[in-house]
Amino acid sequence: MNRGSSVALFVTCLADTLFPDVGRATVAVLERLGCQVVFPPSQTCCGQAHVNTGYQRDALPLVRNFVATFERYDAVVAPSGSCVGSVRHQHAIVAERAGDNALAERARAVASRTFELSEYLVDRLGVTDVGATYPHTVTYHPTCHSLRMLGVGDKPLTLLRNVRGLTLLALPAAEECCGFGGTFAMKNVDTSTAMLADKIGDVLATGAEVCAASDSSCLMHIGGGLSRLRTGVRTVHLAEILAATDGAA
C-alpha cells in the first residue's frame, strides 16, 4: 500500500480538450484512494500521433516538453494506455534519432515512473476495489496498446469486477484491434471502418449498455460508430466507471 502518495496527472491532450470528464474522474479515483494529485499546467501532448505518422522530428519538442514537465515527479499517471505506451517505448527513440542522447536518458527515467491508470491502481497502490458503484451492464475492450505494448493484462477487468452493481459481459474477439490506429483511421478509412464494423458487431452481441476501455482515442472511434448507427450503446472510460459512487456517469 502506498497511499498518501503524490501523483502528477498527465491528462493527455485528447481528454483535456474533448473528454474532460475522463480527467475529472481520474482525479476523483486517485483522491478517493488518498493520493495527492497535481496537474502540471505546462503539459500538452505526448507526441504519439506525430511519431506514429512519421513526424519524429516534429515530435521532438513535444517529448522535450513532456520530460521537462514531468521529470520532477515521483509518479505520473495517465488515463490512456497508448499515451503511456508512447512515453515508455517511443520518447527515448525520438530523442536518439535526433541525436539528443541526454534527452533520451532523461526520457527513459521519466518513462520508468509513468503509469497507465489501472497499472498504477493495482501495481503501485495495491488496490483492486476502488469503492465504486455502477449499476450497469458493461463490456470491456482491452485496447491494443494497453494489452500488448504495456502488458496490463487483466488489471482493468479485476478493477471492474469489484465495482458494485456492475455486470461485466465478456466481449467476443476482445483482443482484436478496433481499427482506430491514430491517423490510420483517416489514411485507411475504409479498412478502419471495416474493423470498426466487426468490433461494433461484437459489442452489440454482448447486449451490454456500455462499452468501456482505457483509452479515449479508441473510445472516440468505437463510440463514434455506435453513435452513427444509433445503437443506443454508449462508451465510457474505465476511469469514469471507477469514479462513480452513486450510479451516475
Binding site: V11, A15, D16, T17, L18, F19, P20, D21, G23, R24, F39, P41, A185, M186, V189, S192, T193, L196, M220, H221, G223, G224, G225, S227, R228
Partner: peptide, 20 residues
C-alpha cells in the same frame, strides 16, 4: 474522413485544464 463513418464528439464547454 473521420465523419465518413463515425460521429465526432462535440467539444465540451470547458476543457480539463479550465476546470482544474
Amino acid at each position: 474522413a473521420w465523419t465518413a463513418a463515425r460521429d465526432a464528439p462535440r467539444p465540451p464547454a470547458e476543457t480539463f485544464r479550465q476546470w482544474w
